[in-house]
């Protein structure tokens, strides 16, 4: 009878020994952390700590997505810790953002819920080629920065980390309908920003 929690070959977390997967994961984590912390050094620290934490507490993962979810849960806590330490700045920030968030829909739709004329989405010319333009990515990042903190966080969990709804709800402790509302707002905001600053520049 052994109470040693030694992982045997069959249950060892294979994804952690996959060099390429790790590399990609690290990149995604870094983007995620930098966008939320606005500071490359703190982001790197958070990523390091999260990875070390993951390696130290090796356990059985049911495939890559479980590992990803778990590592990002750790990273999210590290980011939260860092944000708490500079609470004063964040508070000021979030006040501004919360204000913006409150006005979201009023600016886009009339009281019957139809597009205001000037807010109606336009046709995007050749969105596929934008990704080859360096300047486009600067616009994209500015637009992400412009999102209220909560919207950006959940949007990135969904679209950067590619977590499923139920995983995000568990990690962020919110309901599905809360998540849906927030993602809806984030997408409305983001597409508007991209349209105004890239796809309709020549107006």
């Amino acid at each position: 009878m052994s109470d040693n929690a030694t992982p045997d070959a069959a249950t060892a977390p294979a994804p952690l020994s996959d060099e390429r997967f790790l590399q990609e994961l690290r990149q995604q984590m870094h983007r995620f952390a930098s966008l939320q912390l606005n500071d490359p050094q703190s982001a790197e620290d958070a990523v390091q700590e999260a990875l070390v934490g993951a390696l130290r507490n090796l356990r059985t993962f049911d495939g890559r997505s479980a590992l990803k979810t778990w590592v990002f849960a750790i990273l999210k806590n590290k980011i939260a810790d860092q944000l708490r330490q500079r609470k004063r700045f964040v508070d000021a920030d979030q006040l501004l953002n919360a204000d913006r968030e409150g006005h979201d829909h009023d600016e886009l739709f009339d009281r019957h819920g139809h597009w205001l004329k000037e807010e109606r989405p336009a046709h995007w010319e050749d969105p596929e080629s934008a990704i080859h333009e360096k300047h486009f990515w600067r616009v994209f990042e500015s637009c992400l920065d412009y999102l209220p903190a909560r919207q950006a966080q959940l949007f990135m969990m969904r679209e950067f980390i590619e977590l499923e709804s139920h995983e995000i709800c568990a990690a962020a402790e919110i309901s599905v309908s809360n998540l849906n509302v927030t993602l809806h707002r984030a997408r409305l905001r983001l597409r508007e920003c991209l349209e105004n600053n890239w796809f309709q520049r020549e107006e």
């Binding site: 990149q27 995604q28 983007r31 109606r120 989405p121 336009a122 046709h123 995007w124 969105p127 596929e128 934008a130 990704i131 990515w137 994209f140 679209e159 950067f160 997408r187 983001l190 597409r191 991209l194 349209e195």
Partner: peptide
């Protein structure tokens, strides 16, 4: 209709980004 197409574009843009 444009919004609908843009949801797809937004996803592929974000995927390209990451």
């Amino acid at each position: 209709r444009n919004f609908s197409k843009q949801m797809g574009s937004l996803r592929s843009i974000t995927r390209a980004y990451t």
